[in-house]
Structures are given as C-alpha cells and as structure tokens.
Design a protein around this nucleic acid. Structure first.
Lengths: 207, 207
DNA sequence: GCTATATTGTGAATGAAATAACACTGTGAC
DNA sequence: GTCACAGTGTTATTTCATTCACAATATAGC
C-alpha cells in the first residue's frame, strides 16, 4: 500500500500541474492502474476525506500523503558503491528527488575518492563510520558486489542507519529494527521470463 | 513464490559448489531467510520429493526448479536504453547470467549506435522492429526515461515480446497477454524511508 | 426547495498466501 | 530386529489484502 501511495502522489502532482484541482477515485485509479475501490480504501486508511459529488481535493490529498510518508525532517541518504549501478541511482535521484538529502557516497576505488560525482562528494569506504557520525543518515543504499554487501550492511547498521535499499543479489542479515528492501534485478528478470511464457506452458512445467 | 524459487536455486548452486550434495529444508530455509515450512511447501508444489532422513538431493532440486522456471529454449532478451541504468543492467547480466541470451541493445544517441557495449551490439532505436524481426526476443527491458517508456513498450509488444522488465518510473499500458514487472527505484527508496521510521512514529502519522 | 445522479465511505464476502500442526517414513543405534 | 528420532509431505488454520456491494451524501439542474 505504501507503494501505491507513492504512485498516487506522483500522479496527483502531475494532475495539479495540469491545473486540475479535484479528482475522482476512478480517475486516480485509472492513472495508477488500480481499481477505484482500492483508491477509496487507501484514502480512507490515511484519514483523508472527499466530497461525494466533487471527489477529492488533489492538493489536500498530496499533503495528507506526505504527512504519512515523509519523516518530519528531511531524511539523509548514504550511497555505498559507485559502480555503474550506484552511479545510475545517484543520477536518478540527484535531480528527481529534492525531498531526499544525499549526505554521502562511498566507494573503494581510489580514483573516485575525493572527487565529486553527480553532485555528491565521494568518500573512501573506510571512512564510512567517520563521515556518518558527522552527518547521520536515516537510510543506506547498497550498490556493491554481492560479496561485499553483508559487510557494508553491518557497518551501515552500526552507523545508525534504520533502513536499507539493497541492490546486491544477496539477502542481508540485519537486526529486526532495520528495514531492508531488496531490489534484485536478476530475480525480477527471471520472474519476467517465467510469466512471459503462456500460462498453459507454465502449468505443464509443474506436472 | 517464483522469487523464492530463484533464490533457492542460487543458494543450491553455491551449496553444490561447496561439495555438499544433500540439503535439509531448514538449511535451505536459513539461507533464503524463510521458514522450513515454506521451503517444503514450495518443493512440494513443483513436484520434487526428498527423503525423510536425508533431505533433498541438491542437484536434483536445482534441476527440477530449472524445469519449472526456464523456458524450453534459451530466451532472448532485448534491452532498450543504454544510459547509466541500462549499462548497469547489461554489465550485471552479461557475465552473471549465461542462461539468458541478449539479442540486442537499443539506444537513441548516435554515438552509441553501431558500437559494441559490454559485449552487446547497440542498434538505433528506430531499427527496433527490424532487428527483433530477424532475431525475436521473449522479453524486453525498458531502461529509458519515463517520457519514452510507453512508446518503447508499445513497439516491443508489436515486436512480439511477451514480458517486460520496466525500470522507468511509469506504469505501462499493455495488453493482458504481456506480463510487466515494474522495478521503480524511487518507489523502493520511499518505501525504505517510510519503514525506516520507528513504528510508533508511523502510526501516529496516520492519526 | 426538491429530485435525480454520480460518487464517497465502509461493512461483508472472497481469495490467496503465510503459518502451524501433525501423521508418515526411512535411517541409524543398540 | 526393533526402537527412537529427525525430517518430509500434507492438511487445517489463520491472517491479510483485495474485491464486491450498497447505504449515505452532497451537488447540480429545474
């Protein structure tokens, strides 16, 4: 449901930018590709309320979603690993996401350390603890090879990070107080390959 | 469950590489971070069977999983978009995934067209239909900016693709016969930010 | 002011996935 | 040979999210 809220907000902002102040559940549902019942239920859950004949006030709804999703203060983000994946992530968020604050990036390769890459200062991985002690991050992004991921995770956790976006193809072991979201491109692609097959073929593969 | 099967296979291969031929449900469960009951249920679902006192034969299980997950012939993959994200994807899979066949990559920028990038020939986006007619792909990966994603999706579908891994931050409109898996880094990161907050704080945000 | 209507808010029904529970079975110890 | 036991295969239970259905309601037109 959190994923849907993020999507709603994205569409609502575009909706507002088009100069339209109000929106019906079925309109938002169409944009986010869910049913109108889901939209209404989600809106109800976050405690917002619309008018039966005029729909929801888009601005107010964006605001309410923000109050649910966004932490009180702008959260710091630490990125570890500036290989192609890490760079891609940084590029995406650098401009696209002003509500996040990238506090630091880390990499092991000496030629990157000290430089500023996509607007973010790159530190040596060894300095992770030091840098994050000066400027704490709420969440960390792990974009290092699988072998190094668990070690990075341990250190991020010790540095006080409360959530991790893990792009490495391994499952991390973390204390239960730390939330981990795995984004594993290999798994996703295999999933697509599987479901791309006609259903009949999939079922007979089970037989 | 497909995601779990992919994970099982990954761990089983490492297990085999360590020279261990047999594995118990709770051992595999520990590696994949699920409960043993889930493992046994999954194994049952795909029709494999172990021995009560000796566990599962790892090799046989890998084989069975492959028969469920993998299509009969090696599936072709088409990658569209060779920005930082596309390059990262290509690099990841080029070496890591021999069971996939990258048939072609596409990009709009002229300086990339014609070159071979990470072992894959880069074509102009305009030639998408032509190239895929000569060498069809089962699935497509969309790694272009959001504005271009829907157009690319339409063309991939027309070119006969049956599944799409969508890395762009938009929901695609496709016929129901085409399976779409969305991997949206912005959404994932916002999810992490949300769940990184202490539960108490999250709940009062709803009030 | 009143009525028709389209939409919201929400309880109940449905369905799928995780969890728990347990009977069955093959193995090794004695 | 038989007895205990650790682990599998399967069924039942629970839980949770989605879908369905419909009463309540505010607006616009007359």
């Amino acid at each position: 449901m959190v994923e849907r809220l993020v999507a709603y907000r994205r569409h609502l902002r575009r909706w507002l930018a088009d100069g339209k102040p109000r929106i019906y559940s079925h309109e938002l549902a169409g944009l986010a590709q869910v049913t109108s019942a889901v939209v209404r239920r989600d809106v109800m859950t976050i405690g917002y309320t619309g008018s039966p004949a005029k729909g929801y006030a888009a601005a107010g709804l964006v605001d309410r979603i923000g109050r649910v999703l966004d932490p009180p203060q702008r959260p710091g983000v630490a990125l570890v690993g500036l290989g192609s994946l890490g760079r891609a992530v940084l590029k995406h968020f650098a401009r696209l996401h002003p509500e996040l604050r990238f506090v630091a990036a880390f990499d092991v390769s000496p030629e990157k350390v000290g430089r500023i890459i996509d607007g973010c200062r790159c530190h040596g991985s060894a300095d992770l603890e030091t840098v994050l002690r000066a400027d704490p991050a709420l969440v960390g992004i792990i974009a290092v090879p699988g072998e190094a991921a668990q070690d990075v995770a341990d250190r991020l956790v010790r540095a006080g990070v409360r959530g991790i976006l893990n792009l490495a193809p391994v499952r991390l072991q973390t204390p239960p107080t730390v939330y981990v979201e795995d984004v594993d491109l290999a798994v996703s692609l295999e999933k697509v390959v599987f479901f791309a097959r006609p259903e009949t073929e999939r079922l007979e593969a089970l037989a």
